[in-house]
Amino acid sequence: MTQYGFFLSCEEFTPDELISQARRAREAGFTRLAISDHFHPWNDAQGNSAFVWSMIGALSQAVDLPVTTLVTCPTVRLHPAVTAQAAATSGVLLGGRFALGVGTGEALNEHVHGDAWPSFDQRAEMLEEAVEVMRELFSGNLVTHRGRHYTVDNARLYTVPEEPPPVYVSAFGPKAAELAGRIGDGFVTMTPDADLVGAFREGGGADGKVVGGVKVCWSADRDEAVDRVHRLWPTELLPGELAQILPTPAHFEQASELVTREAVAEAVTCGDDVDQHVETVRAYARAGFDEVYVGQIGPDQDAFFDSYRELVLPALRR
């Protein structure tokens, strides 16, 4: 049965707001949390970029829900050994209720050290090696690794959970979905695409979890909701590899000028039509997803949580 979680956006909300949302999500009946990992927001209108590992530590003390990163890039901005330590500590704090979602990253967040941004094939190769390094370290054993992209010299994690955190690999195309099936314990993608799920399963992920996420904007005023999404999240509609290669929020703002309000109204679930919200989320269950995380765009969080508690989540579970 598909599990329904709430998505915490570090790009749009302050740390205090994220903690409050996590508590509200639990009260509303969401059974788990996902959280983004960004150095920059997608645009200045979003206006935040809390450090995800600090947030996970705070969440572990605020709620008892499982937490998954959607997603962390363990290859450029943070070395996989440092990411492994952060993930292991998170697993201990959450009593084993932590999952590490990983991906090949975006230049937006990973270019900040001044490193050249690699091609996708190289980034996929780096991710595969990073996952190997992290799994070795999760064992709690002494690790020395000298690979093509990473060196680890006599490193050991002393604080590790009883079971290693599962590693879910993000993918947006068949090639990457096959990689997720080969190296991951699960697969993360943001569209309810049954073909991608099939590619993951055929690539070796027969028993792995499939995890997705979707942003909505619940509001009694649909027009206002569309305007809000168009201002805050037009980046959701940028095509192709732009999200992976544009380096700054300013570049995303420039590209987003091509995203029309009409396109947002057609693509994003806005307003208070319960059936539409139910259908948007249920599409993931039909495509074979095990977990789907819903994020509410904008400040009207109370109306969202009240409506999902009373109307949307009960309909999804029927």
Rank of each mutant, 00 (worst) to 15 (best):
V312G: 06
P66Y: 05
Y150D: 11
L196D: 04
V102H: 01
A267E: 11
A25E: 03
T151D: 14
D306L: 02
G140L: 04
P192H: 07
N141G: 15
L246H: 02
E136P: 00
F6V: 07
V152Q: 14
V294I: 08
E132R: 08
H40Y: 13
S60E: 09
Y284D: 02
Q61Y: 04
F6E: 01
Y308D: 00
I297Y: 05
A58L: 13
V229D: 10
R282S: 10
G288M: 04
L93E: 00
G96T: 10
V92A: 00
E106F: 12
A176Y: 00
T235V: 12
K175V: 15
G212D: 10
D290I: 02
A58C: 12
F98I: 01
G105T: 06
D16T: 12
W42T: 07
L232G: 02
C270D: 05
A255H: 06
R135C: 07
A84F: 05
A180E: 04
S219T: 06
D227S: 13
F30W: 06
V197W: 00
F200I: 08
A116F: 13
G57E: 03
M55W: 00
P249M: 06
L94P: 08
W218K: 01
L127F: 11
L196N: 03
A199Q: 10
E12Q: 14
Y284P: 01
S307I: 01
G101P: 01
Q21G: 09
S90T: 02
A28T: 04
G186A: 09
A22S: 14
P15W: 01
K209S: 12
A50M: 03
P314K: 03
F30T: 01
W117A: 10
T31I: 06
P166T: 14
T69D: 11
L237A: 10
G147C: 13
V67E: 00
V76F: 14
V268K: 01
A45G: 11
V210L: 03
R318K: 11
D207Q: 12
A88Y: 00
T280G: 03
R201L: 06
D207T: 09
L70C: 14
N154F: 07
S36V: 03
D272Y: 02
R135F: 09
Q254N: 07
T104C: 13
G47C: 08
A171N: 05
H79Q: 12
E125Y: 04
D290H: 07
G184P: 11
A25S: 12
M1F: 11
T72I: 01
V197F: 02
R148S: 15
D37R: 07
R317F: 00
A155F: 13
V167C: 12
D223Q: 10
G208Y: 04
E236P: 02
F187P: 07
P164M: 09
Q3S: 11
P118T: 07
Y158E: 15
A58H: 11
Q3D: 11
S49N: 11
I297E: 05
G101A: 09
V210D: 02
V226E: 09
